Simulated assay, not measured.
Amino acid sequence: MEVKRELTPEIGDGDGPKGNREGVPDSEFPSVRTTVKTEEDNTIASITSPAKKKRKPLGPGSVLSRSLQERGIRGPASHPSTIPTLPNTTTDTSPVPDHLAHHLRVLFIGFNPGVQSARRRCHYGNPGNHFWKCVVGSGLTGGVGVTCDDDKLCPRLYGLGFTNIISRSSPSVATLQKSEYSAGVPPIVAKLVTHRPRVVCFVGVKVFEAFWEGVQGACRETEADGSAINRRPLPASRKFQLGLQPKSIHYAPRRRPTPVDGPAERDTDSKDETTIKEEEETLLFVMPSTSGRVVHYTRADKLAFFVRLREVADRAVRAGGAA
């Protein structure tokens, strides 16, 4: 037995705005016809049943619409364009500004801003991201509650800075290209040379891998300008453990004029007695991404990395003097 269902064409389709059937009699609504064909006698029987009525939209001729018009109120069906469109003042590609300072306790380097971070113009702005909860829970802010809206205050109040290896926003890091990672390394190196943080924390393994691959070439370029990171090679193998890395960044000696009034520690090895030499280093710390999409590490696992990071930063500050 063969069963065939057919829907008769709608009457009134295209009449009025958006196919409004205002004024079409109920009998003209579409119906469903079921055709049954039997194999024994090859006869065909048709059963026609009315289709379920759809609720009619409010039209200019309805009782409610006429009542509204008598009271001077225009209904939405007769004036569909009366709702104003507000201008969009922000875009998903808006860059999130860096928040940096000299000798930060920790400089966090992330992938790139997510869509919500770009809209709010703050770092780690997605409510599902564990970053700020871990920052507070680890004691990096001394127990003071902070959110992404406070990121601009963190360099001055807590010695925490923020930047990204890629500046453009995207819904997911999966859309980022390898060329973008490579292009982001020299600007990161320049920021390190300028600000010389005690610790750099790479928030995401791939961020550190991109830095690892590109840093030696970037260092050669900046050293030609006279102020760059010393080429102390990183381990040849790309395999590494999360947490504090065995190699640190040692900067080329930076010379600055000796103050005219007041004592200064002079560089006795240099013939130029008007300069002093500063030797500094930056420790490297790697942790998994704090995104809520990263399920390989629980929030408690991520918090443990932040606690270790605080301990490393505290030791670095004590060893290098107050920031």
Rank of each mutant, 00 (worst) to 15 (best):
R105C: 02
T290K: 02
C148P: 01
E70P: 01
T43S: 15
P60M: 10
K53R: 14
G12D: 09
K54V: 07
P84C: 00
Q241V: 07
I188F: 02
G75T: 14
V32T: 11
Q116W: 01
G23S: 12
G114H: 13
R231K: 07
R310P: 03
R256Y: 00
E39K: 15
P127T: 08
F29C: 00
T43D: 02
Q216S: 14
S67L: 12
A236H: 07
G161N: 02
N164I: 07
D261V: 15
T141W: 09
P171K: 13
G128V: 00
K247T: 13
V96I: 10
A228N: 12
P288A: 08
I47T: 10
H99R: 08
V215N: 01
P76M: 11
I276W: 11
Q245K: 06
V106T: 06
G139D: 08
V135S: 05
K54Q: 09
E279Q: 06
Y124T: 06
H103K: 15
A319W: 07
D15L: 13
K4L: 12
D92Q: 04
R5S: 06
T141V: 04
L107N: 03
K56M: 09
A304G: 12
G320S: 15
V286Q: 10
D92K: 09
R254A: 04
R232Q: 08
Y158S: 03
T147C: 03
D98P: 01
R238G: 11
T282D: 04
G159A: 05
V317L: 04
S167G: 00
T90A: 13
R255T: 07
A174T: 13
V203H: 06
R231Y: 07
T222P: 00
V207A: 06
F29Q: 10
D149I: 02
V146F: 08
E209L: 14
I276F: 14
A316C: 09
V307I: 15
T43Q: 08
L107G: 04
R232N: 13
G142T: 09
V3F: 07
P97M: 07
V205E: 14
A77F: 11
K247V: 07
P17Y: 11
D13Q: 08
G61N: 14
S172N: 14
G75A: 09
G59N: 14
D149G: 06
V307M: 13
A190K: 10
C122Y: 01
V115M: 09
V32K: 05
E28V: 03
V24Y: 05
D41K: 14
P95A: 12
S237H: 09
F162I: 00
S167Y: 03
D272N: 15
L309H: 07
G214W: 00
R66L: 13
C154G: 02
R168T: 13
A118W: 03
S248W: 02
K18R: 14
G184M: 04
K239G: 00
A319T: 11
E22Y: 07
S227L: 10
R198Y: 05
V36L: 14
G19H: 12
E40P: 04
A77S: 15
G139A: 11
Q245V: 09
G142W: 02
K4V: 14
S67D: 06
G75F: 01
A45I: 06
E40Q: 10
K277G: 03
F131W: 04
